[in-house]
Write a protein that binds this DNA or RNA. Structure first.
Lengths: 146, 146
DNA sequence: GGAAAATAGTTACCTAGGTAATTAAAGGAG
DNA sequence: CTCCTTTAATTACCTAGGTAACTATTTTCC
């Protein structure tokens, strides 16, 4: 088994997906990283930056940047917590109003991206990747024991 | 089927793989994008930048940057072609000498990354991704007809 | 042959993500 | 209470990849 090929395929798929998302979001002045934050906030409600970055499996610094851009665009608010170290992030009314439009566009593109790939194959693929990710996660867990 | 989840998994896997590759390459002063160029050159011999970027499915500008860094490190040479627009890229003797060491380190990390994921599952995953990628490719082909 | 179109590579500038170091607040041990 | 450690967020700086615009050749077509 050529692992290079496997890894390359994963990488290329990831870039293709992001590229397509960016294409569709462009006309709303959004980018894929911003969208993923908006999406999570809509599903989960207000979260701290820490929770957001854990949820999206991204380090804190990129999360700070993405949020600051969303703040500047007026789509998100930072609310200081009782613990003054943390900041809760929540959608503004503007974002909640615009959300359905964004979502529709993204969902359409998602369907387009997955077109020609059967539900059963999607399920298999998701299953395999989940398994792989969890094995990677458990490896990391071991290393952090030190 | 939650496409968000599927796409997120692909993205996360891609980042994990690159992160691990960078970790192992760090001690040789290399990064994953550089490695992928060195790897292709070792397999294929001298290639033009155009061929390299097509092979790795990367746009020309990032390829220029990666190559310029490799040139600076003395691992790669740019040889002007007969057609003066193109530049052939080839490994230097230094790179050829060091290559086995790099390869060993990368292969070990690859095995570690895939550990706990059976050969059969690897094969299935590769199969599914190849199918998906080719369907995406054919979509792009259609759009370029315009 | 000469003007126009195509092509290889580069430059400039953007987003996405990473690490290391810093700041400010909260907790804990003595 | 004080000092030390931990933690959330930020800042600075790095690689990876993308698009748009540009340069310099080559091809094409009249």
């Amino acid at each position: 088994m050529e692992l290079h090929v496997l890894f390359h395929s994963v990488h290329q798929l990831s870039r293709q997906i992001m590229k397509r998302n960016n294409t569709v979001l462009q006309k709303y002045g959004l980018y894929s990283a911003q969208w993923s934050v908006l999406y999570v906030l809509m599903q989960q409600g207000r979260l701290t930056q820490k929770e957001l970055s854990e949820y999206l499996a991204v380090e804190a610094p990129p999360m700070t940047r993405t949020i600051q851009r969303l703040v500047k665009q007026g789509y998100v608010r930072q609310v200081p917590g009782e613990d003054k170290r943390m900041k809760f992030i929540e959608l503004t009314e503007l974002a909640q109003k615009e959300y359905p439009v964004w979502e529709k566009a993204v969902l359409e593109m998602n369907e387009q991206t997955i077109k020609g790939f059967s539900k059963e194959h999607q399920r298999q693929l998701q299953q395999l990747m989940a398994e792989w990710l969890s094995s990677l996660e458990s490896q990391q867990g071991e290393e952090e024991k030190k």
